[in-house]
C-alpha cells in the first residue's frame, strides 16, 4: 500500500514535467549535466544527516539510561530529579534549544573559563541528544516498570537480591519492550536533524535550501528533499519491523 502511494505520487508529479511550463524538473533531471550535478549535491547531504542522527541517537541512549535510573528509585528525591529533567527538556522546542546550545552555551562555558567553540556538527548533535534523552529516558522507565510486580516478587522468594533480579529477570524481559520504541524514536531524530540546517550544518535540508537559492526551483527541490527523508525513514521503519518480529519470535 505504502509503495503504491509513493509510486502514484511520483507519477503525478512527474507527469507535470512535460505538460506544463510551471514544472522545472530539469533541475534534477539525471539525463542532463546540470541535473546530475544538482542531484549529486542534494544526495551528498545523506552522509551528514545519517551521521548526525546516529551519533545523537547513541548519545541519547546513554543519557536516557542515566536519566531513567533515578526515576526507578524508591527514594522520592531521585524520582523528583528524574521528573524535573524529563519535564523540563521535553518542554523546550527544538529550535530554541539549538540556538541556545550553539550561540549561548559557548558564552556560558567561556564565563567558566572553558574556551571551546561549538561547531555546527557538535552543536546539532548535543541538541538532538539532549532533546531526545527525555524521551528515551521515559522509554526505559516504562519498559522496566511494565514488567509485572509478580516477577520481582518471584525472584525475591527464590532468594535473588536486587541486582540479580534486575540482571536475570527484569532486564532480559524489559529489553524486548524497550528496543522497538527506542528504534522508533530514531525516526524522530532523523526528522529533527533537519533543524541543524539553520546553524549551517551541511545535511539534506541545508543542501536543498542552498540549491533553491541558486536555482529558484523550490517546488521540485523540496519535493525531492521530502522523498529523500521518506526513503530514509522507510528503510529505518522496515528495520524496526524486522527487529520487532525477531523479538516476538524469541519470546515464543
Amino acid at each position: 500500500m505504502k509503495r503504491f502511494l509513493v509510486a502514484a505520487g511520483l507519477l503525478l508529479l512527474l507527469s507535470g514535467c512535460s505538460s506544463s511550463t510551471a514544472w522545472g524538473w530539469y533541475v534534477i533531471d539525471p539525463s542532463t549535466e546540470r541535473g546530475r550535478i544538482n542531484l549529486q549535491f542534494l544526495i551528498s547531504g545523506f552522509g551528514n544527516t545519517i551521521l548526525l542522527s546516529v551519533i545523537a541517537a547513541v548519545m541519547s541512549m546513554f543519557l536516557g539510561l542515566i536519566v531513567a535510573l533515578p526515576g526507578l528509585s524508591d527514594q522520592r528525591g531521585w524520582r523528583w530529579a528524574n521528573r524535573v529533567y524529563v519535564e523540563f527538556i521535553r518542554a523546550i522546542p527544538l529550535l530554541p534549544m539549538l540556538f541556545w546550545v550553539f550561540y549561548g552555551l559557548p558564552v556560558v562555558l567561556k564565563s567558566m573559563g572553558i574556551k571551546v567553540s561549538i561547531d555546527p556538527f557538535w552543536g546539532a548533535i548535543i541538541t538532538l541528544a539532549l532533546a531526545d534523552s527525555a524521551f528515551t529516558a521515559e522509554i526505559y522507565r516504562a519498559g522496566i516498570q511494565s514488567i509485572a510486580r509478580g516477577q520481582r516478587e518471584a525472584a525475591q522468594t527464590i532468594g535473588l537480591n536486587r541486582a540479580q533480579t534486575m540482571r536475570y529477570v527484569i532486564l532480559p524481559q524489559a529489553i524486548r519492550r524497550i528496543l522497538p520504541p527506542l528504534a522508533n524514536q530514531f525516526i524522530y531524530i532523523v526528522k529533527m536533524s533537519a533543524f541543524a540546517s539553520v546553524i549551517g550544518m551541511q545535511e539534506l535540508t541545508r543542501r536543498a535550501n542552498e540549491l533553491v537559492v541558486t536555482e529558484y526551483r523550490p517546488l521540485e527541490i523540496y519535493t525531492f528533499l521530502i522523498l529523500e527523508y521518506l526513503v530514509l525513514v522507510l528503510v529505518i521503519s522496515q528495520a524496526v519491523r524486522w527487529l520487532e518480529n525477531r523479538m516476538r519470535v524469541d519470546e515464543r
Binding site: 509478580g150 518471584a154 525472584a155 527464590i158 535473588l160 536475570y168 529477570v169 519470546e251
Partner: peptide
C-alpha cells in the same frame, strides 16, 4: 531462605525455559 512461595498467577519467568526457571536459584543464590 527456608520459605518457598507459590502465587496465584504462577509468576514464572517467561524468557527462560522451564529448566532455566528451576536452575536460576540454585545457580545464582
Amino acid at each position: 531462605a527456608e520459605i518457598g512461595m507459590v502465587f496465584q498467577q504462577f509468576n514464572l519467568f517467561p524468557h527462560l525455559s522451564v529448566l532455566e526457571n528451576l536452575m536460576l536459584g540454585p545457580l545464582k543464590v
